[in-house]
């Protein structure tokens, strides 16, 4: 009896400790998403003098025929897939190198996380300067090497602007992946490799038969985080290209932002938020399903 009431008291205190945090999370994460679902059923733009008018699924129908929306989706897909794949390969390579023992390892490990810690918007400016068409150092190096004769307008041509963005993103976020993967590598017991080597396995075999399978959970976690972040990339694009030239690097997030902030089309912006959110949730659900299956086996 007294034990029961003690438990009840503990639970009450537990909720008191938990609820303030949950309220803040609900206000900043749940409310805006729920609000977007509701607002997406209204037309609220300059045409309605910014007053919400119920319009059902009009916003979603408009999206179907909105070429700019589909282009931004395509751009986002290209950016996400290429940058995440590159980051995963590079991040794994770097983690493998940093897992070796060598003098000065601490220093190199420290250097290898610096880009992750820096503000993306600010470093986007640094990369825009590096890719500057007149005074950029990339053009200068390529000219000195004789690869090109005159400076390339990196941020002014569609495919090259996307390339520059991807390079900057790889620089900025590969460290995150290598941190996660390095932690995974350190948790693989060394005797596994020794036993495997005694069985006559070569380095490639032990990599593909021990390292990769045991690292899979970390790889999937890194993939999950990076996928979500790349899918919502905003800072880097806004600062480096602003979505240009001619929309060639406009990602969904940039399109949402200008729909709301520049065209003041709140209803349509909300519908874009909803669709992006649902796509993201679907992708996350698929990845975590894989993750769960891995953990079970």
């Amino acid at each position: 009896m007294s034990n029961d009431s003690l438990d009840g008291r503990e639970k009450l205190i537990g909720w008191l400790l938990l609820i303030p945090a949950l309220l803040v999370l609900a206000l900043v994460f749940i409310y805006p998403i729920a609000r977007a679902f509701w607002l997406s059923l209204f037309t609220e733009n300059l045409g309605t003098q910014l007053q919400p008018e119920f319009s059902g699924l009009t916003n979603y129908l408009r999206m179907l025929g909105d070429g700019r929306f589909w282009q931004s989706m395509g751009n986002t897909a290209i950016f996400t897939i290429i940058s995440v794949v590159l980051e995963l390969i590079l991040g794994l390579g770097i983690a493998l190198v940093l897992n070796q023992s060598f003098r000065g390892r601490g220093v190199v490990r420290t250097i290898a996380i610096i880009p992750w810690a820096l503000p993306t918007a600010v470093m986007g400016l640094a990369w825009a300067w590096i890719f500057n068409d007149q005074y950029g150092v990339v053009n200068d190096i390529l000219q000195r090497l004789g690869v090109i004769d005159i400076g390339i307008n990196w941020l002014g041509s569609p495919a090259l602007a996307m390339t520059a963005l991807i390079i900057a993103d790889v620089w900025k976020t590969t460290p995150f992946i290598s941190i996660i993967l390095l932690a995974g590598l350190q948790s693989i017991p060394q005797d596994l490799y020794e036993a495997h080597a005694m069985d006559g396995a070569n380095p490639w075999q032990s990599f593909s038969q021990i390292t990769l399978p045991l690292l899979m959970p970390q790889i999937l976690i890194a993939l999950l985080f990076r996928f979500a972040q790349a899918f919502g990339v905003f800072d880097l694009v806004q600062v480096m290209t602003g979505g240009g030239p001619a929309g060639a690097t406009e990602t969904v997030s940039i399109y949402i932002y200008s729909t709301v902030m520049r065209y003041l089309d709140f209803g349509y912006g909300a519908a874009l938020v909803v669709v992006t959110f649902l796509l993201l949730i679907a992708a996350v659900a698929i990845t975590s399903l894989f993750l769960k299956r891995l953990r079970v086996s």
């Binding site: 409310y31 977007a36 985080f225 899918f231 990339v233 905003f234 997030s253 932002y257 959110f277 993201l280």
Partner: peptide
């Protein structure tokens, strides 16, 4: 929610 991009939140 750690996976939500902030661009989904700024409107609300």
């Amino acid at each position: 929610v750690t996976l939500f991009p902030y661009v989904l939140l700024f409107l609300g």
